[in-house]
Design a protein around this nucleic acid. Structure first.
Lengths: 207, 207
DNA sequence: GATCGACTTGACCGTTTGGTCAGAAAAGCC
DNA sequence: GGCTTTTCTGACCAAACGGTCAAGTCGATC
């Protein structure tokens, strides 16, 4: 077990290699479906060597999850209360969509965890995540009250943005299967669709 | 191994009991995460007895999946080409939402399978499912061309209906955690939200 | 280039897991 | 009640799994 403070070059490199390999395996097999042998093999290391850098399979998984959860919420934090409401929310949706595009494995890892009851991050959900969402929902409500957005339930608006954007990462096989033989450009089409969806929904009726 | 044709009372009852227990376990643990012992215990039977009724763990799983896939697509098939477009699509969304409400475990079982690459139902997706979706997408396109719906990409509209409705089953823990301490009525609120979302999106601009 | 600590590994261990099997109970039938 | 077929179970097995350990190799520092 290497110390926390002084990280040697080799430690840094191998820990990163292991986390990358573990992300690949965990995201497509789930926690229980993934094996240390798979992870070690994907990392190009022996199993005991993997366990030299991480105390256990569980330790690798939780490290991945906690690192992920942080970056996952960045788009929400980037909402500007002083911006133009519709533009802000569409921009938020775009950021979330961009994360599905760039980090589909992270999205699937998260989806796996939540679908199976989120046993390891329930506290994070009920605590910090809830607080952040409530705050943003409050902001959206003030925009609606000011007549700058069409009236809509803020919490469910956020849920629907999550659902629609993450769908393209989490259900990728299904989307691809149905859209075949289209190329990879389907994600651009999807983004255009979502912009339209939320623009129409959020634009207040002209008086 | 019981024959297919003559099903005794006991066979019928126990096979159903096992499938019900397996649904409970598979939907919350995934295929690899579930164990035969868990399923047997949940069914109140011994493990060898479970294997007397099903050839293998895999056989239980695939039977669940194939039964599920059929009923899962019923709402799509119920679309009426001669109905009023917006009413038809909103009604379709409501049916999908109702399935999330009544069969959340089935939804999670499906989600687990797709997220992990749908290894067992890829053919179903690329074949019958794609065909059905393409057909409905064509219908929606004719409605749009006739000016009865606001222009929108039909395939992605269908995806977004799936994503938003299934989200409340698949990500139930997350939704509940954020909406606490609200009661179970949040699903009614969600449905209202979705009706608004799609009504606004689909209603053509007044000329 | 010797020394010390960091790194790596083959062999191994206990447990869990999916699955088998011979035979014991039940159930159905006359 | 006897006989056959179906249903059920305890004991067992081989493979896979997460994890350990003693011993070996490598890399940095002097």
């Amino acid at each position: 077990m290497p110390d926390d403070r002084p990280q040697t070059r080799i430690q840094k490199r191998n820990r990163e290699t292991i986390l990358e390999a573990a992300l690949e395996v965990f995201s497509s097999e789930g926690f229980r479906g993934a094996t240390l042998d798979q992870i070690a093999s994907a990392a190009g290391l022996s199993k005991p060597n993997v366990l030299y850098y991480f105390a256990s399979k569980e330790a690798i998984y939780t490290e991945l999850l906690s690192t992920l959860l942080d970056t996952w919420l960045d788009p929400l934090r980037a909402l500007d209360p002083n911006g133009e409401p519709i533009a802000e929310l569409v921009a938020y949706m775009r950021r979330k969509f961009e994360m599905s595009r760039q980090f589909p494995r992270e999205s699937r890892l998260f989806a796996n965890e939540i679908v199976q009851g989120a046993p390891r991050i329930l506290d994070e959900i009920n605590g910090p995540l809830k607080a952040l969402v409530d705050e943003v929902a409050g902001l959206i409500q003030t925009w609606i009250s000011a007549g700058r957005l069409a009236p809509i339930d803020p919490h469910h608006l956020i849920f629907s943005i999550w659902a629609t954007t993450q769908h393209y990462a989490d259900f990728d096989v299904q989307v691809r299967g149905i859209l075949l033989p289209e190329g990879d450009s389907h994600l651009d089409t999807a983004e255009d669709f979502l912009v339209t969806l939320y623009t129409r929904t959020l634009t207040p009726k002209a008086d």
